[in-house]
């Protein structure tokens, strides 16, 4: 087979379903959708349709190229990026996002709020705007998207069901007394702003990540291998996967968009007490094992 690949531009003509929609007077509505992570690869058909048929699209995307793509799907895109400002609490920004979106819903518009990844993961405004809209009697939904977590499982070959998987925003380890389950994977998010209590910084100095490592070394040896991971936003890139010793994490290549994956350091320990309780139940209800064949 030739290694040369041609790029084709498939054209998809969707069935016209507009006559299936009720013609009664429209009230405003809002749907939060996820753009996925990788441009062109992850947008779901239903999210795409919400975007293409919206009167107004609000965009909170981490990659400017993806926002340019979004503008091709619907020219009525309003970027939420200008609301950010260094030194301004992000919570204030997020509340402003909710308000500007609700203004359009109240004006009777069909609004689509587009967030990168999954709109309901590590995102305050999509949940809040749905809560506010429903409280005011408007239709409001969320459609899931492919998240960075989904990409991580695929790229690193981790099945969260095998040993379990504990996800935490990294700052919680410094703000609260959290217990880590070192027999499963521990995955830490929002490393770029770890330790920031002001909500006004977009990146904290390396010293804050050094403090995080100090906290993690209460549960793990400093030579425990961890993975610094970043999913690709452009389809011409691969994932960033860097394996380093926990103690060297701060010196790893770091843009602020990475996630820290800590593999298990201890083996799962059988629980004799609850296994004995299961034995008692099996004695009553049967064990489910296939009967042994006697000769």
């Amino acid at each position: 087979m030739s290694s040369f690949v041609t790029i084709t531009f498939a054209y998809y003509e969707p069935m016209n379903t507009s006559n299936l929609v009720s013609t009664e007077s429209r009230r405003g509505s809002i749907t939060s959708v996820g753009m996925g992570i990788t441009l062109g690869s992850h947008l779901t058909p239903i999210a795409r349709n919400y975007i293409e048929t919206a009167d107004v699209v609000f965009a909170a995307l981490s990659d400017h190229v993806v926002e340019l793509w979004l503008e091709r799907l619907n020219p009525e895109v309003r970027s939420l990026q200008p609301y950010y400002r260094p030194g301004k609490s992000r919570m204030k920004t997020y509340r402003e996002w909710v308000e500007v979106m609700m203004t359009e819903v109240r004006a009777g518009k069909r609004v689509c709020a587009v967030f990168y990844g999954h709109p309901g993961i590590f995102a305050w405004s999509p949940h809040k705007v749905i809560e506010v809209a429903r409280a005011e009697g408007y239709e409001a939904y969320m459609e899931p998207g492919i998240s960075a977590e989904d990409c991580l499982y695929a790229d690193l070959g981790i099945d969260p069901a095998r040993f379990g998987c504990q996800h935490l925003e990294a700052s919680q380890l410094l703000f609260f007394e959290r217990n880590l389950d070192t027999t499963g994977h521990v995955i830490l998010w929002q490393l770029g702003v770890v330790g920031d209590r002001s909500l006004g910084r977009f990146k904290t100095p390396d010293a804050y990540r050094e403090l995080l490592v100090e906290r993690l070394c209460q549960d793990y040896p400093p030579d425990h291998e961890v993975i610094v991971y970043r999913a690709p936003t452009l389809p011409i890139e691969g994932p960033h996967i860097q394996r380093v010793a926990l103690g060297d994490f701060v010196s790893a290549e770091y843009t602020g968009h990475e996630t820290l994956v800590i593999p298990p350091v201890q083996a799962l320990k059988p629980n004799a007490v609850w296994r004995a309780r299961l034995d008692a139940l099996d004695a009553i209800h049967g064990s489910g094992f296939e009967p042994a064949v006697t000769a």
């Binding site: 700052s171 703000f175 929002q190 920031d196």
Partner: peptide
Amino acid sequence: ELGIGERFGEHHSQTGAHED
């Protein structure tokens, strides 16, 4: 070429930061 600039990606507050 595309006239693109830096983007901010955090859409969540830090749980336990001053406002919540």
